[in-house]
Design a protein around this nucleic acid. Structure first.
Length: 504
RNA sequence: UCCUUGAUAGCUCAGCUGGUUAGAGCGACUGACUGUUAAUCAGUAGGUCCCUGGUUCGAGUCCAGGUCAGGGAGCCA
């Protein structure tokens, strides 16, 4: 019997097993908020309706104590799930002493050190359920479209691109690297099965400490024979639309719990704007407006607003600190103001962080040099102007991967496409049409100074029945992060691995 | 790797231009209260002020080096 099914058991006596997520006591009553992994339910133990022994057991149930509790289910609109259990019996399974994660505020380092316990808290619980929906929806989408799931190896003999971002391991005495992409293997598999996708972990040894990087993350890489870049963009759009819509339909409660405004997510039903690199650069530099909004001036405005907010926040902190000092103030009122002050100070340091960052972004946007790849801040500057994901295609070929097809219309460009999430999230999908010309590929491999011999098998794909083909890579955690509007990718995966973080 | 901010109680933080015995809230513990939603109220315990060295009559506070962490850049999904 699970809490999610309580409505089926109204006015019946049932037994629930779970953990005490919270407890409040008064003279003859104990309120236990039971958490069973499927939901929360308040359980009331009344001294008048149970024996003294049972009542005393209930009082011993500390935070995160595991227990089973039996009682009658009654409807109560005030409660979280709409139901309450009136206990007739309680059995403690293990009494938890001094559970580290309290009901209140914690810093990120502490929470990350306690990630194994943090996963139990409401917000993290909701995020993981949304992650699950996304994973399932991805499989459903591809399977329904006739794709075959085929996985690429995780041990690889060489890099797809530079070797600086690879984790090296010992493979029976030879150097082997943890895969940073299944892309090339995906192409081989697509030549065998036409439409395939891989779904597995990927490893990047980048010493990055930003909100969008993990050392170990899950990537979905479809590869499709006889698709050009435009077919590819159609697929990306249909794919994201289907997956996000699935979350909207399945996880209403979870989205509400984490406070996600779903209006922008609902916009995925509308067509995604498609910009060429040239068009996107003009927008970033402020030469072209989007829907009457200019990238540069709107960012300048935001900087001014941030500065105003800083002043206003400082003022409010001062006022409340002055207020606390007034003699004869009740303890409760002091506590209330103190909590407010703490919150305001947190907001203030976030705002000051922004005040330090925005000028750099402005600078990067104003001085953007045509021909360069977009940086994180350029993506932010660009995507802030849109209310749904956008696709940027036809990139200068020098800044993109060696395997991307040169645009037949203009050989300065490669047929790559990046899909950027709105609200400043940036790249969630990178892909494109693959180069089919053997000579151009060989030239590129030399240019990038890659070991030709390691790519002979890959070149075989162009020697034996080469066809136009395309594909893309989706970073699962980046999608989860955007869908949930998380401040950082580290909350989008159960146990994040990143620079400086290997435990727990 | 670079820029930037920080490290004080179990947790979140205050501690001013160096000055006697180190502060708050929350949590824990004890007690009061018959329906609470971060319950409330009263009380108790709880400290290697990140590490090493320096300046000084005196360092949580100043200086140098280091370690760890937050944010950003580069790179990327």
């Amino acid at each position: 019997m699970y809490i999610k099914d309580l409505s089926k058991y109204e006015s019946q006596e049932i037994t629930l097993k779970g953990w005490a997520a919270n407890k409040r006591e008064s003279k003859g009553l104990v309120f236990i908020i039971l958490r069973d992994g499927t939901g929360l339910c308040q359980c009331v133990v009344d001294a008048n309706s149970v024996s003294e022994t049972i009542f005393n057991e209930a009082r011993k149930a500390t935070l995160e104590t595991s227990l089973s509790i039996t009682g009658k289910i009654v409807k109560d609109e005030k409660q979280i799930g709409g139901y309450e259990l009136q206990a007739t019996n309680i059995e403690l399974i293990q009494v938890a002493v001094d559970y580290p994660i309290a009901k209140k505020e914690h810093g990120i380092e502490f929470l990350m050190d306690n990630r194994h316990l943090w996963l139990r808290s409401q917000r993290q619980w909701a995020i993981m359920r949304i992650r699950n929906t996304i994973i399932f929806a991805i499989h459903k989408f591809f399977q329904n479209e006739g794709f075959l799931q085929m996985d690429a190896p995780l041990f690889t003999g060489n890099a797809v691109e530079g070797t600086s971002t690879l984790f090296e391991t010992d493979f029976y005495g030879d150097a082997a690297y943890l895969s940073q992409s299944g892309q090339l293997y995906g192409e081989a598999m697509a030549m065998a099965h036409n439409k395939i996708y891989t779904f597995g972990p990927t490893f990047r040894a980048e010493k990055s400490k930003t909100r969008r990087h993990l050392s170990e993350f899950w990537m979905i890489e479809p590869e499709i024979a006889f698709h050009d870049i435009f077919d590819n963009m159609d697929l990306i759009e249909r794919f994201l639309r289907t997956v996000v819509t699935e979350v909207l339909n399945t996880n209403k409660a979870e989205l509400e719990l984490i406070g996600r405004d779903t209006a922008i997510l609902e916009n995925v039903v509308k067509p995604f704007p498609r910009l060429t690199y040239d068009e996107a650069v003009k927008i970033i530099k402020g030469e072209v407006d989007v829907n009457g909004i200019n990238a540069i001036t709107s960012l300048e405005q935001e900087l001014a607003e941030v500065k105003n907010s800083i002043e206003a926040t400082k003022k409010e902190i001062d006022e409340r600190e002055e207020k606390i000092k007034t003699p004869g103030m009740k303890k409760g009122e002091i506590g209330f103001n103190q909590a407010k002050i703490d919150k305001l100070k947190q907001e203030l340091s976030d705002l000051e962080e922004q005040e330090r960052n925005i000028p750099g972004w402005l600078n990067s946007a104003r001085n953007f040099e045509y021909g360069n790849d977009f940086g994180g801040s350029d993506e932010t500057v660009l995507t802030r102007l849109f209310d749904r994901p956008i696709m940027v295609y036809n990139w200068p070929h020098e800044v993109k991967a060696f395997y991307l097809k040169r645009d037949p219309e203009n050989s300065n460009f490669a047929r790559g496409v990046d899909t950027l999430a709105p609200e400043g999230y940036g790249e969630i999908v990178g892909g494109g049409e693959r180069e089919t010309d053997l000579n151009l590929l060989v030239e590129k491999i030399n240019e990038h100074q890659l070991p030709m011999q390691a790519f002979e098998w890959y070149l075989d794909l162009r020697r034996y029945g080469s066809v136009p083909h395309s594909g893309f890579g989706l970073g699962l955690e980046r999608l989860v992060t955007w869908v949930c509007k998380l401040p950082h990718v580290r909350e989008s995966i159960p146990f994040p691995r990143m620079y400086g973080r290997l435990m727990p």
